[in-house]
């Protein structure tokens, strides 16, 4: 397009080495997933059955939806560690309303609205106080979890068999959660790649100060993004509560860290400004496969925790290698 031999040479030198498609973290992840599946499958053939792979997919649906929210936040330079308790709070409220005889539709509506509102609050605090979002949302995590405990009084709450469609229903034989997660992956990818909103999110994650100086309303964008992420969490929460049928206040426990792990494994960086939704979803799949595979191989859950931890650290180090090389 524009040739300048000198700078071209310089550019090549910096990115020399492996061919482009191998340096791509998303592709690398795909290879790891295939290799892992072959390894698990060769140890226990049951792993590679259609039925089991479908089960893996089913297991990761809530995580997959929630991870889209985390990816949007990380790419824009934010983070939300309160999404686990947002799920818990939303589920608890839905069940409480239903158990008190409320209209199911209204309960669902309020249950969806709560994470949206929580996200909005997080966004306002983060953008207006200029505090580190990690700490703010860590605090909010306790606030929302505390609220969920107060409302549920620590008891098991039930949906009384209502609203099973989102979690257990099927459309043309395809489980609803699978449809939702696939739609969400494509929608999020589309949002980030082809819309002004999405591109501004990535720009803000890359250099917030410059985004502000370039005339982007950074505060408003942050609040919108936290609120949107809240809505995605609301959806994840509806799927979860619909599938489980009864919940405790800690229904969403661990989701904040597992979504973070999946996104980081998928090549999203903690610093913001980088990462793809395709990679993020592969990160979710990898976590699902490891968990399911180790289950099938009868590895104790203690070792599973260990394995997941190792994978996260390796993923972070691998994704940082490029940065070190380019110094």
């Amino acid at each position: 397009m524009m040739d300048n031999p000198k700078s071209d040479g310089q550019l090549k030198k910096k990115t020399a080495g492996l061919p482009a498609f191998l340096r791509n973290q998303t592709f690398f992840l795909l290879i790891v997933i295939v290799l892992l599946s072959i390894v698990f499958g060769s140890i226990n053939p049951r792993f590679l059955t259609w039925r089991n792979l479908l089960a893996v997919f089913q297991q990761i649906t809530v995580l997959g939806i929630a991870t889209m929210a985390m990816a949007l936040l990380l790419i824009s330079g934010g983070i939300d560690l309160s999404i686990g308790s947002m799920i818990g709070l939303s589920s608890v409220v839905i069940c409480t309303l239903i158990m008190r005889g409320s209209n199911v539709g209204l309960a669902i509506f309020i249950g969806f609205g709560i994470p949206v509102f929580c996200g909005f609050i997080n966004g306002v605090i983060v953008s207006k106080s200029k505090c580190v979002p990690l700490i703010v949302t860590l605090g909010m995590n306790y606030v929302y979890y505390g609220l969920a405990l107060v409302i549920s009084q620590g008891l098991f709450l039930s949906m009384k068999g209502n609203f099973q469609f989102l979690g257990r229903g099927r459309v043309f034989g395809v489980p609803m959660p699978m449809i939702i997660v696939i739609v969400m992956v494509f929608a999020t990818h589309f949002l980030l790649t082809y819309t002004k909103y999405g591109r501004r999110l990535v720009a803000m994650g890359g250099n917030e100060q410059l985004a502000y100086l370039s005339g982007i309303n950074v505060d408003r964008l942050k609040i919108m993004n936290y609120t949107l992420s809240g809505a995605i969490i609301g959806l994840a929460s509806l799927v979860l509560v619909s599938r489980l049928g009864n919940v405790l206040a800690n229904a969403g426990e661990g989701y904040e860290l597992r979504t973070l792990a999946a996104a980081i494994i998928g090549g999203v960086t903690f610093e913001g400004g980088r990462g793809t939704i395709a990679g993020t979803f592969l990160g979710v799949i990898l976590l699902g496969i490891v968990q399911n595979g180790l289950n099938i191989l009868n590895v104790s859950s203690y070792f599973q925790t260990l394995a997941v931890g190792i994978i996260i650290v390796v993923a972070v180090v691998v994704s940082n290698l490029e940065k070190i090389r380019n110094r």
Binding site: R200, A203, N207, L210, G273
Partner: peptide, 22 residues
């Protein structure tokens, strides 16, 4: 044109070119 922080390093040329008025 600000010193040092004039561009978003992780984005390509057109994205930087049109930053803030895509």
């Amino acid at each position: 044109v600000y010193q040092e922080l004039a561009l978003i390093e992780t984005r390509d040329v057109p994205s930087n070119f049109f930053l803030g008025r895509e």
